[in-house]
């Protein structure tokens, strides 16, 4: 993809982000931070490329370390979000 197409995706995504995030209810702002944290670990894509490439051992090791770090975040971030969201309950109707 050329730079301009990438830039277009980026700018449009910023607008999408703006509107989507404003629609998030304030009660869920902590889960929002946890989940955005998890998804920003999509940086693992870059780490995987570095880890898979042969030739430069230093780069490969850095890639593997980055894969490990990002995995902590991905699994930890989604799991903790899931745990938090499970706690949000409506009032049970007892009466």
């Amino acid at each position: 993809m050329d730079f301009i197409s990438i830039l277009s995706i980026f700018v449009l995504a910023c607008f999408v982000g703006y509107y989507v995030v404003w629609s998030v209810t304030p009660a869920l702002h902590t889960p929002l931070m946890a989940v955005t944290n998890a998804i920003s670990s999509v940086i693992i894509v870059g780490a995987l490329i570095a880890a898979a490439a042969a030739g430069v051992p230093g780069a490969k090791w850095l890639g593997l370390i980055a894969v490990t770090l990002a995995s902590v975040n991905i699994f930890g971030g989604f799991a903790v979000t899931e745990r938090m969201l499970a706690m949000y309950k409506k009032k049970e109707k007892k009466k």
Partner: peptide, 26 residues
């Protein structure tokens, strides 16, 4: 959350340095 942010940051640094060392792969 702060700790998790630090991991994303560090991962980004490592990926960037890896890309610098081995740009061909990227």
């Amino acid at each position: 959350v702060a700790a998790f942010h630090s991991l994303v940051g560090l991962a980004a640094v490592l990926v960037a340095i890896a890309a610098w060392l081995n740009p061909g792969a990227f």
